[in-house]
């Protein structure tokens, strides 16, 4: 199915295939709000030249990270990409050290060494972002193999975009995971553009999920803007992996509101297309679902938004007032002693 042909707007309801506890839904909504606020305010800060480097915005894709990570435990592993902030937050990373890292500060989660594309936390199974498209997928197999060797039921998730699905690393990793029956989820967030080139120009098969057939594993196209659909698909794939049934490829159809990076003029796509996708906004849809099911009130949802807004603003304030790293620190940690 093509996401362009999907019907737009709040008329497209979120599609829970099974009952999800309201508390769990609220958690997902608040997490999506946190990501949304974070991306919004970072974009603003970047536009004001408050921090250096790039910013690869996750705006619009919040349901992907939150839906998948909601199906994971703390001891499950994730490997992510240059556009990884949604995954970090969804897997539980604290907001302030992550934002300080975006600003390259001494109290960033990497001490300012990584910047926007890198963060990790072994305790949460977050095995890092990546500056290389497709660079993380191969080592997700190693994390999955550790679980096999340990005889544990942990799973690993490799997040990547449809652009990375044209890298050899994706195919090598998927083939190995299939051949070895690894507890590994391949989660492709297909936001339609590999950097600034439409996926349709790079691949004759526009459904990445179909590639799974070639490796003998299940592949599934999922509405990536429907957090409950993503959650349901991820939960089923995780259960398969935990049970020893091997890897799954999930393709989450979604859309990147910003360009490849903040400031990308997006000449390669139309305003109409952007508007169409904004009408299918994952937060709007979950918001509508919560109200339509009478799970919560408009005012409570608004208060959550204000709460997340304030928390992100506070974290950015901390980042702005934090010290830069001591340059001498650059010489440490090259080798483990």
């Amino acid at each position: 199915m093509s996401p362009r042909k999907q019907t737009a707007g709040a008329k497209t309801p979120v599609g829970p295939v099974r009952t999800v506890e309201p508390g769990h839904i609220f958690q997902m909504y608040r997490k999506m709000l946190e990501i949304r606020e974070c991306e919004d305010q970072l974009n603003t800060a970047f536009s004001k030249n408050l921090f250096p480097g790039y910013i690869h915005s996750y705006l619009g894709q919040e349901a992907c990270a939150v839906g998948v990570c909601s199906a994971l435990r703390d001891d499950d592993y994730i490997v992510t990409t240059h556009r990884g902030r949604g995954h970090y937050l969804a897997k539980g990373m604290a907001l302030t050290p992550m934002i300080c890292e975006m600003f390259g500060k001494a109290n960033g989660i990497c001490g300012g060494r990584g910047g926007e594309m890198h963060a990790a936390d072994p305790a949460l199974g977050i095995l890092g972002g990546n500056g290389i498209v497709g660079g993380g997928i191969p080592y997700a197999t190693g994390a999955a193999y550790s679980a096999v060797l340990n005889g544990s039921d942990q799973v690993a998730v490799a997040f990547f975009g449809e652009g990375a699905s044209n890298q050899g690393s994706f195919h090598e990793a998927m083939n190995l995971a299939a051949a070895w029956n690894l507890p590994l989820l391949f989660v492709c967030e297909n936001n339609l553009y590999a950097e600034m080139t439409p996926f349709s120009a790079s691949s004759r098969q526009v459904d990445v999920a179909r590639r799974a057939e070639g490796y003998g594993i299940p592949g599934e196209v999922v509405d990536g803007n429907d957090v409950l659909a993503v959650y349901a698909a991820a939960e089923a794939a995780v259960a398969r992996a935990r049970s020893g049934a091997g890897p799954t490829l999930l393709e989450l159809k979604t859309y990147r509101y910003g360009g490849h990076f903040q400031g990308d003029p997006c000449h390669y796509r139309t305003r109409e297309e952007e508007a169409e996708w904004r009408a299918r906004d994952p937060l709007i849809r979950l918001h509508a679902h919560i109200l339509s099911q009478n799970l919560s009130s408009e005012s409570e949802l608004d208060s959550w938004r204000e709460d997340q807004k304030a928390q992100v603003a506070a974290a950015i304030e901390v980042a702005l007032s934090s010290p830069d790293p001591d340059p001498n620190e650059a010489l440490s940690f090259v080798y483990a002693s």
Partner: peptide, 28 residues
């Protein structure tokens, strides 16, 4: 067979396997 394992001819993922395993407590 778990600790001595043949891989596909896929050099990138062979090294990647080692990277991920080393990050998660193994000595590949």
């Amino acid at each position: 067979p778990l600790r001595v394992r043949d891989t596909p001819i896929s050099e990138e993922v062979i090294v990647g396997l080692g990277v991920g395993a080393a990050m998660t407590g193994k000595r590949p």
